[in-house]
């Protein structure tokens, strides 16, 4: 992916819930610049996670287009989407979602198995990613031997291991205390500023959203206001 600009055009997604059709995303149009840190906010059921899943190729829309760089995700098959994800997106989840049977290093190496790198190169790359998140001394620990913050750092290292242009984070600080949450948010901010990653972070937390360059508000599947934190009044 040469350009990580995101264009969403008339994106629609509905679910059937108790015989009722729920419009989770309702002909949503949205453009996002590459290399920017976005926070996505909105009440529960506003379509934040659904939008994140669409952008990551984890879910498919009923209609509309999702363009990430040059790729129209709506036109890719399941296997093509899987391949696209492995090369272009890193995910950070609220519950960390590390494989419990693998060590921190092995968890980070996991997405690298889908690259043509040799075993030695994969190991080196995983160690670099873990060093970047400050976990050099915890590489051989399994998730249960790590704190929540450390687990989320491993998850972030895994998300950046393949050097994707886009990082999608779904409530990455939802399970963490304030201090740990701030350190994770600072890490994401650093990834955006130093490595120019495009980050889209779903959050309920206004303080967390404060770390983003821009805050997109969704309401009932439609686009609300967009705040720009880089303006002098909201700049951090």
């Amino acid at each position: 992916m040469t350009d990580s600009r995101i264009d969403i055009r008339r994106l629609t997604k509905t679910y059937q819930r108790g015989g009722e059709t729920v419009h989770v995303l309702d002909e949503l149009d949205l453009g996002m610049e590459g290399g920017t840190f976005y926070a996505l906010m909105g009440p529960s059921g506003s379509g934040k996670t659904t939008l994140l899943n669409m952008l990551g190729g984890l879910d498919v829309p009923d209609s509309g287009d999702v363009l990430v760089g040059d790729e129209n995700l709506s036109q890719l098959s399941g296997n093509e989407l899987a391949q696209w994800r492995s090369q272009n997106v890193g995910f950070v989840f609220q519950g960390f979602n590390l494989l419990p049977v693998l060590t921190a290093r092995e968890n980070v190496e996991l997405p690298l198995l889908l690259t043509p790198l040799s075993k030695k190169e994969r190991r080196a790359q995983a160690e670099r990613a873990l060093a970047l998140v400050g976990l050099t001394d915890r590489m051989d620990h399994k998730p249960r031997e790590l704190s929540g913050g450390q687990e989320q750092r491993v998850a972030i290292a895994r998300a950046i291991a393949t050097d994707p242009a886009l990082i999608l984070a779904d409530e990455p600080t939802g399970d963490l205390d304030r201090t740990t949450a701030n350190s994770i948010l600072e890490l994401l901010q650093r990834l955006n500023r130093e490595l120019k990653k495009t980050i889209l972070m779903v959050t309920h937390d206004p303080e967390a959203a404060g770390y983003a360059d821009k805050v997109i508000h969704l309401d009932k599947g439609k686009l609300g206001r967009i705040e720009d934190n880089r303006k002098p009044a909201g700049a951090r």
């Binding site: 990551g56 984890l58 399941g78 296997n79 899987a82 391949q83 696209w84 994800r85 492995s86 090369q87 995910f91 979602n97 590390l98 494989l99 996991l110 997405p111 889908l114 895994r158």
Partner: peptide, 14 residues
């Protein structure tokens, strides 16, 4: 089930 979801999210095929 969780591991399957994680693997698929990372790009592993069905």
């Amino acid at each position: 089930t969780k591991d399957i979801g994680i693997l698929k999210a990372l790009g592993f095929t069905d």
